[in-house]
């Protein structure tokens, strides 16, 4: 077992996390460190517990035991909005957007959360006068390639475009840690490549990311470190080259598809 003492440049430290759903042991003894500035990929077959792990990190689920430490502070037990305000943003596996609002509004809202905090009674000034927030939102809509639809309702987007919108919603907050749950699922190959390019660009700016991904092309082009989950357990953890060559992983996961 690895040490449970967080190292200095550890942004996220998951310590001995356990989670059961009735008889199903969705997560057992998960220990994981995410280092500052890295892209940490979590891979594993469907139902391995990857999304559940992210749910525990953002306060959507409480672990049965264990703790999640972010920037040296324990975040287990905190409310989802508090965790976001501390600097963790997430892109969900099934797009979580505001379907009745426009793309621009969808992207401005997280920017307001970042600027104004969890609550601010900002009821007199007009949204259309909040130039800085609007420009910031437009900047990220541009980067994900949706700027031309900015005044459309988010509900009108295709599945892949919703994912890109959500990516913009996460990035506009400049989170200290961005959690991406299969960000390219539902995207065309062309959009997938564009998303990889975008994530590479962000990586250069030093944003720390955890990415769950099935597409090995995406994983191996982005990840600095890979953790492999199967049936709620970590079966391998290391540099991409090591994980690729690991026979256990080959058998449990990559074996069938490679």
């Amino acid at each position: 077992m690895r040490t449970t003492v967080p190292m200095e440049n550890t942004v996220l430290h998951i310590a001995d996390v356990d989670k059961r759903f009735g008889g199903l042991h969705a997560l057992s003894d998960i220990d994981l460190d995410v280092k500052e500035g890295t892209t940490h990929a979590i891979i594993g077959p469907n139902g391995a517990g990857k999304s559940t792990l992210l749910n525990v990190c953002i306060g959507r689920l409480a672990p049965d035991s264990g703790a999640v430490v972010f920037d040296g502070k324990t975040i287990t037990g905190k409310r989802p909005y508090e965790i976001n305000q501390m600097g963790i943003a997430r892109v969900f596996q099934t797009a979580e957007i505001f379907p009745d609002l426009t793309l621009l509004q969808n992207t401005m809202i997280p920017a307001f959360a970042k600027r104004d905090g969890a609550f601010r009674l900002n009821a007199w000034p007009m949204v259309s006068r909040q130039r800085e927030i609007q420009e910031e939102a437009e900047h990220w809509l541009q980067d994900v390639g949706l700027i031309e639809y900015k005044d459309r309702l988010a509900s009108s987007l295709s599945r892949g475009d919703k994912r890109r919108l959500e990516l913009a919603m996460g990035l506009v907050q400049h989170p200290r840690l961005l959690l991406l749950d299969e960000p390219t699922a539902g995207m065309s190959r062309h959009d997938t490549n564009a998303t990889i390019d975008l994530l590479m660009k962000i990586k250069e700016r030093g944003m720390t990311k955890v990415i769950i991904e099935h597409d090995m092309h995406v994983v191996f082009s982005l990840a600095d470190r890979i953790t492999v989950l199967a049936q709620g357990r970590i079966i391998a953890d290391g540099k991409p080259e090591d994980v690729k060559g690991n026979p256990v992983v080959q058998e449990a996961y990559l074996g069938g598809t490679h």
């Binding site: 953002i58 959507r60 409310r79 989802p80 909005y81 976001n84 305000q85 943003a89 997430r90 969900f92 979580e96 957007i97 505001f98 379907p99 009745d100 609002l101 509004q105 401005m108 809202i109 997280p110 307001f112 959360a113 970042k114 905090g117 969890a118 609550f119 949204v127 919603m169 907050q173």
Partner: peptide, 18 residues
């Protein structure tokens, strides 16, 4: 705008920091 966002997807608002 936040009120409309609550109507549209209240859960998302929480994960967005509100």
């Amino acid at each position: 705008m936040m009120l409309r966002a609550i109507k549209s997807n209240q859960n998302r608002m929480a994960y967005t920091g509100f």
